[in-house]
């Protein structure tokens, strides 16, 4: 699509033009480490595996990804650059996709910088690196899911705080839909099929499946469809705003 590349490059460069990239990446890595080693008891576990590390990803993304996503459109609208962007000869979809991809690649860079964890487990033992690779891919896909939700919410407001809070709430619903806490409660009142439907919308269900080491087509389709859907919602919301 024409224009995606230009928007993508501009957007990605803008993360690194401000302290945003540094602050985000430092906090991301610090939080990942703190959760894994202290809360997760990585050493006590005595296993050469990154399962504990990855199990915290959904919960960290829940707060950190909306922090990246909240500015995607709310900031453009607030600063007036949206008017510029929408009167340049690029399709709205190209702008939506370009901005999303830049944020997704940025999240991917932060995720990739956790590689010392991977080196550590390989130094301490002999983990299944196939499982670790699959988990990294799964984690990045999941980050894309959270980002797409955040993009849609950001498109609906010019207030970044509102964008952040609403994104966290919606992301939370998508995360816990499959958590034991929810499923145990639901299992008492809902028929099995409905339970399965709800749990199939959960990031946890799909991420846990990938963390087991198998990237199933269903999980790819789930995250792919979710991202496409929320990007579509993003462009609909921006288009609606044109009506004033």
């Amino acid at each position: 699509m024409k224009g995606v590349g230009a928007v993508f490059r501009r957007e990605l460069a803008s993360y690194f033009a401000t302290p945003l990239a540094t602050v985000f990446i430092v906090i991301f890595l610090f939080a990942m480490g703190a959760f894994t080693f202290y809360l997760g008891g990585f050493y006590d576990n005595g296993q050469a595996s990154l399962a504990i590390f990855f199990s915290f990803h959904p919960w960290l993304y829940l707060f950190l990804i909306p922090a990246i996503a909240m500015r995607l459109w709310a900031e453009e609208r607030k600063s007036g650059t949206l008017e510029l962007l929408l009167t340049l000869p690029i399709p709205l979809n190209a702008a939506v996709v370009g901005k999303f991809l830049a944020a997704w690649v940025f999240a991917g860079i932060a995720l990739a910088l956790t590689f010392p964890m991977w080196i550590t487990v390989n130094f301490l033992g002999s983990p299944d690196n196939g499982v670790i690779l699959a988990s990294y891919v799964g984690s990045w896909l999941m980050a894309g899911g959270y980002l797409a939700i955040g993009s849609a919410v950001s498109a609906g407001t010019n207030n970044q705080v509102i964008a952040f809070v609403v994104s966290v709430v919606i992301s939370f619903l998508f995360t816990i839909a499959g958590a034991p806490l929810v499923m145990d409660t639901l299992s008492a009142i809902l028929p099995l099929e409905l339970q399965n439907t709800i749990s199939s919308f959960s990031f946890l269900t799909h991420f846990n499946a990938i963390m087991a080491g198998v990237i199933d087509l269903r999980d790819l389709v789930f995250f792919g469809t979710l991202i496409a859907f929320f990007l579509y919602v993003t462009s609909v919301l921006i288009d609606l705003r044109k009506a004033g």
């Binding site: 501009r10 460069a13 803008s14 033009a17 401000t18 600063s79 007036g80 650059t81 008017e83 510029l84 009167t87």
Partner: peptide
């Protein structure tokens, strides 16, 4: 079209 919107918005960090 060349368009200068109200307030001449531009990406400030660039």
């Amino acid at each position: 079209l060349g368009y200068l919107p109200e307030g001449a918005p531009a990406y400030g960090d660039m």
